[in-house]
Design a protein around this nucleic acid. Structure first.
Length: 382
DNA sequence: GATCCACGGGAATACACGGATG
DNA sequence: CATCCGTGTATTCCCGTGGATC
């Protein structure tokens, strides 16, 4: 960090009123312990796993709904609530026994974006269940499966939530079904966007539909905004964001997060209209969720950073882009090109035909542009 | 020695266009 | 006019190799 940067930071930190007091509250990838205004959905989820409260293994459940409808928020909240509840009721001696954290019921939350293969899903699950570290390599997937089975043979019931199913890189419902089939005392709760009728069989009989936010989004924004900022979020601003985002909490929070940063950068003491508009400006309405971008590998992040650094106004065929990026990384242009194509298929980048040079024979090249908020990506990468 | 996976290279396939063919 | 074909690119798909870890 150079000197001016230090001074800059010091200056913003010491400005009379710090505007952002809790960044996490404004962060679209962070979910609060208690989601606002979704009590009925919480009930529906509890209903779905009701047998659990009579010591039985509940059926598998599929939770689905559009992007930004709060699926992740409600499921993470449910799992952590269940965990604390069940733990407080667990007999004291259980905690000290054996290699598992205890017997009875165990809860785990897995993010399919972090665990994309059967191996990784099993590994993450074991990591949640066991106190000991679980190896990341050198152990076969089948060995992990046997390990999970041996835990179950002690009579432990496992409820595992798997978030973000059916994205282009993550496992889908059918795969999750297959992966967790071998385990007798395990119920899974899959979360995805695909409507049940479009999901390839087999699919759980229990569905819980999470519809897009309606008016509740204004409340959610108000609560989270007011927690994150040093002042109450202006009602007009909450309304403006909710309306623009059309019920998508991810987009609304993304814009709010950026707005707060813009305002803070300008040494404002309150969020101003122009900040909110700047936030809205910086978030594409139909982009990929930023969490999906953040979950990419380190190399892919490098590629994206270089891509964002290139002059945005210039049209450039993908080949040329790959070459420019390749020069700045230790990846070959060929690999960069393939990765760019993959990212485009993934939805992280969007492709459009590019008109460059004389109209030759073959197929026209295309260029790539980010399909997410570059500002948000940069802010959250730090 | 076994394991998983990121890279990298390259084969296979898709697409665009002009010209030939029926 | 509709369709097929050849050529030249773009894009997707696949798989072997090697690093890192156990």
């Amino acid at each position: 960090m150079d000197l001016t940067e230090r001074i800059d930071r010091r200056r913003t930190r010491n400005s009379k009123h710090e505007l952002v007091v809790d960044p996490d509250s404004l962060n679209p990838v962070v979910h609060p312990a208690e989601p606002v205004g979704r009590e009925t959905l919480f009930e529906a989820l509890l209903d779905a796993i009701d047998p659990l409260f009579e010591q039985a293994v509940p059926p598998d459940v599929y939770v689905w709904g559009p992007s930004g409808s709060g699926k992740s928020a409600i499921v993470t909240a449910l799992m952590s609530a269940l965990e604390t509840k069940m733990q407080s009721q667990r007999p004291f001696y259980a905690a000290t026994r054996g290699q598992t954290k205890g017997d009875g019921v165990e809860f785990a939350y897995l993010d399919a974006r972090q665990a994309t293969s059967r191996f990784q899903l099993y590994r993450e699950l074991l990591d949640e269940l066991l106190v000991d570290a679980v190896p990341e390599r050198g152990m076969s997937t089948d060995a992990l499966e046997r390990k999970i089975q041996s835990i179950q043979s002690t009579g432990t019931t496992v409820v595992v939530a798997v978030d973000h199913l059916g994205e282009s890189r993550t496992a889908d419902v059918a795969e999750i079904h297959q992966f967790f089939e071998p385990f007798e005392n395990l119920a899974w709760l899959g979360v995805g966007r695909t409507p049940p009728e479009d999901v390839s069989l087999p699919i759980p009989e229990q569905h819980v539909h999470v519809p897009a936010y309606g008016n509740e989004l204004v409340d959610t924004l108000t609560v989270r905004g007011s927690q994150g900022l040093s002042h109450t979020l202006d009602h007009r601003h909450a309304q403006r964001l909710a309306e623009w985002a059309d019920g998508d909490a991810h987009d609304a929070l993304a814009a709010l997060f950026i707005a707060a940063n813009v305002a803070e950068g300008a040494d404002a003491t309150r969020l101003r209209d122009e900040d909110v508009e700047a936030g809205i400006e910086a978030v594409p309405r139909d982009g990929v969720p930023i969490g999906q971008v953040l979950a990419l590998s380190e190399n892919e992040h490098h590629i994206l950073e270089r891509l964002l650094a290139l002059d945005r106004d210039e049209e450039r065929p993908i080949e040329k882009t790959a070459q420019l990026i390749g020069e700045q990384t230790d990846l070959t242009p060929g690999t960069v090109k393939r990765q760019l194509y993959e990212l485009a298929q993934f939805g992280v980048l969007s492709r459009q035909e590019v008109t460059v040079g004389p109209p030759g024979n073959g197929r026209r090249p295309s260029g790539v542009t980010p399909n997410f908020s570059a500002t948000l990506f940069t802010l959250l990468r730090e």
